[in-house]
Design a protein around this nucleic acid. Structure first.
Lengths: 237, 237
DNA sequence: CGGCGTCTTGAGTCACCTCAATGTTCGTGG
DNA sequence: CCACGAACATTGAGGTGACTCAAGACGCCG
């Protein structure tokens, strides 16, 4: 993990490519000056690097500028449980604000850049900028809703439903980022997918095969081409 | 659902029995005056009453003053999915801050009182009171972590583990509220428990029976007496 | 008492897990 | 460049935990 100081870079946030997706979505020109005082450091990670580990002291949240991360906790019996995949434009670390200790690991799945947002500074800036305060609470609310969504996905659903929902969800998030091809490049392993969806790795593999046999997708290693989105969405129901 | 105006009640929050558990945990005397301007209404619900429904416009969050609620969403295919049980001292509605639309139902499980916290007012007050802003972000963070916790519970775990964890978690939350008896009164139906844990209602019933046969708990209708907490915790691993 | 909702209990089935073997990709070093 | 091993992925065979279906018990209320 290498560090970039942003102190000298003016309007770092304002000129950022993922500004519309990130935290400060409703700030205007002048307000960004204050934001630049909050965001002073950026980290570069390689696939497999830990951004933070379970039990680490909390120093702030992180905005993913490029790449992708997974967050995963360790259950009491020592097994890993992936709790989410986080694309660029998303925020990680919000679950540590309360206890000041990270309750899970955050691991880069590919080359990834993250901006560090010291939470104390962020709170102070929020007290001055009503728009920023609104953005902050919205981001936290969105994270709560995202997890509720996963929760609903993990209820009593079949393996096929879970895989279908996973693919539809991933597709829609990539689409929101302007990646309009109908071929998704999975940036996580089958292991991670299975873990996230509560399925054995073999089941993930078999479901991919099954969807391929039905002519709904094409799978080649990490590349998943969606051939029949409507049918896939029907299976996700 | 009946409404109580709190306009005339001074220091409503300061004198509240669940203050230490609720949102404004770090305020002092003067700061509570501002809080009383935020919290102007309280609602009384009977078992089965909806506090809000999916799709309802968001007007603010709610602090549970007494009783308990469940929140449940409706999956795309129309089935219900319980996403949480909320005791007094906890907050519901945080998942709607972002989109201004409630993404799930909140239903009283018993006679329940909730305080209404208009979110706009709460934000304005937070900009003035650093302590309140800290409390607000902490509460939202805690909710994120709570859901992550449920997520980890729903991964690849057996029915026995889920039931054991459910009971341990409920016991610990009640203990935190000073209810020190080792007999828990379940305030939700088997249906709700099964739905929440991703289990069929029959499986819930059988697991209770199994734990009873092992001498770990005693079950009589809604009453669950914990006979061997250590063993229960071991099963929860 | 009878009807209804909730819960329990039993029997049979199936979706998914486990175990095991093979195939593929990729990095490393000779 | 190829050999080798490690990590990842696929595929098959078999077992089982939890679901489904169905019946019965219990409590509640008119």
């Amino acid at each position: 993990m290498t560090t970039v100081r942003l102190g000298k870079i003016k309007n770092a946030c304002q000129n950022c490519g993922v500004r519309q997706l990130c935290l400060p979505t409703s700030l205007d020109g002048n307000e960004f000056n204050l934001m630049d005082e909050v965001v002073t450091h950026r980290f570069k990670l390689q696939a497999g690097d830990h951004l933070y580990k379970t039990g680490d002291e909390f120093h702030g949240i992180y905005a993913v500028k490029s790449g992708a991360l997974k967050t995963s906790g360790v259950t009491i019996d020592g097994r890993e449980q992936v709790t989410g995949f986080h694309l660029y434009g998303e925020i990680v670390g919000l679950d540590a604000v309360d206890e000041k200790i990270h309750p899970c690991d955050a691991i880069a799945l590919t080359d990834t850049e993250v901006c560090h947002l010291p939470f104390k500074k962020l709170r102070e800036a929020s007290a001055k900028l009503p728009n920023l305060l609104e953005d902050l609470t919205k981001i936290m609310s969105r994270e709560i809703r995202r997890e509720e969504h996963v929760l609903m996905l993990l209820g009593t659903t079949t393996a096929e439903q879970r895989i279908a929902r996973f693919l539809v969800n991933l597709y829609e998030r990539l689409q929101k980022r302007g990646e309009l091809e109908n071929t998704i490049t999975l940036f996580m392993s089958r292991q991670d997918i299975g873990n996230y969806l509560g399925l054995a790795i073999e089941t993930v593999s078999r479901q991919f095969k099954s969807l391929r046999d039905k002519g709904i997708i094409n799978v080649d290693k990490k590349k998943v081409e969606i051939l029949a989105m409507e049918e896939l969405k029907t299976l996700a129901l």
